[in-house]
Write a protein that binds this DNA or RNA. Structure first.
Length: 282
DNA sequence: TTTGATGT
């Protein structure tokens, strides 16, 4: 009698966990899908190197790889802010316990690589606030970048996104992340601490519009001087998909996808106005 | 009036 009652209690508890857990998982997926225009990046076939899990932060989400020990993609939305917007002081870097691997704030020290933000400090702070800014300093938002890239060419791109592109549209959907050599084994030992070193970085910027969304995308390699024109690094989204194995904007119709991801079209962005603008830090 | 970091 006693055992039977306990068994029933256990059954109810198990049912609660299964149904509740399933609901939670469903809601989580819905929420992540709705946080990214046309759906979070995914991959078509199973590969060790494209497998990732999603970390949700204030103001941006991260597709984290426990194999590369890198964010494979970071997604966020931006809109123009008032010119006199001030952000909080630059926070300290922080370890992120969710990564499981111990990526400490000192793990890039002496390596010759910067702790390069994927979701950028300034833009996220200006648009999404102080707590979001603190989250951009999590080590799960970092990837090793050469100083000339991080402090110059990449900085110029990020500044152009926020100051030049965002005011031209209602809002922007940005997805950014690292690119690794084609063969995993060729680069598997190329690490700072546990973190695999990428050969390049991509950034996709979309101005969502009902019928005619616009997109530009870039791939920038580690070994730049820093003062090159941004336009030298323009690519199609298809090229980024080929190099990363990811599928961006999976909910796009095939017709729209063919145009938006396959064609290199910079009309509407006035890229030439910022392409050669000098960096803030020399 | 700094939106990027490192190392001392």
């Amino acid at each position: 009698m006693r055992w039977r009652r306990q068994g029933r209690r256990f059954g109810v508890a198990l049912l609660f966990v299964v149904v509740g857990g399933g609901l939670w998982e469903f809601q989580e997926r819905q929420e992540v899908a709705s946080a990214v225009w046309m759906g979070a990046p995914t991959w078509d076939d199973f590969h060790l190197t494209t497998f990732h899990r999603v970390l949700r932060n204030d103001g941006f989400i991260v597709g984290w790889s426990d194999v590369r020990i890198n964010p494979l993609w970071v997604s966020y939305r931006l809109q123009a802010v008032a010119e006199d917007t001030r952000i909080g002081p630059r926070p300290n870097f922080q370890a992120d316990w969710r990564t499981l691997w111990p990526v400490g704030t000192d793990s890039y020290a002496g390596s010759g690589y910067d702790r390069g933000h994927m979701a950028p400090n300034y833009a996220i702070a200006a648009v999404h606030g102080r707590n979001a800014q603190l989250d951009t300093f999590l080590m799960s938002n970092m990837s090793p970048q050469r100083p000339n890239l991080n402090r110059q060419l990449w900085q110029r791109l990020e500044q152009s996104v926020m100051d030049h592109f965002a005011p031209r549209f209602d809002y922007l959907q940005v997805i950014t992340g690292p690119i690794f050599p084609e063969r995993f084994m060729d680069n598997v030992m190329n690490r700072v601490g546990l973190v695999e070193v990428p050969e390049a970085f991509y950034k996709i910027i979309v101005a969502p519009h009902e019928s005619a969304p616009l997109a530009i995308a870039f791939i920038m390699p580690q070994d730049v001087r820093g003062n090159e024109p941004l336009e030298d690094y323009l690519v199609t989204i298809d090229e980024i998909e080929a190099r990363t194995g990811l599928n961006f904007f999976p909910r796009l119709s095939p017709e729209l996808e063919a145009v938006l991801e396959g064609e290199l079209d910079t009309r509407g962005w006035a890229l030439e106005e910022v392409s050669r603008r000098p960096g803030r830090f020399q």
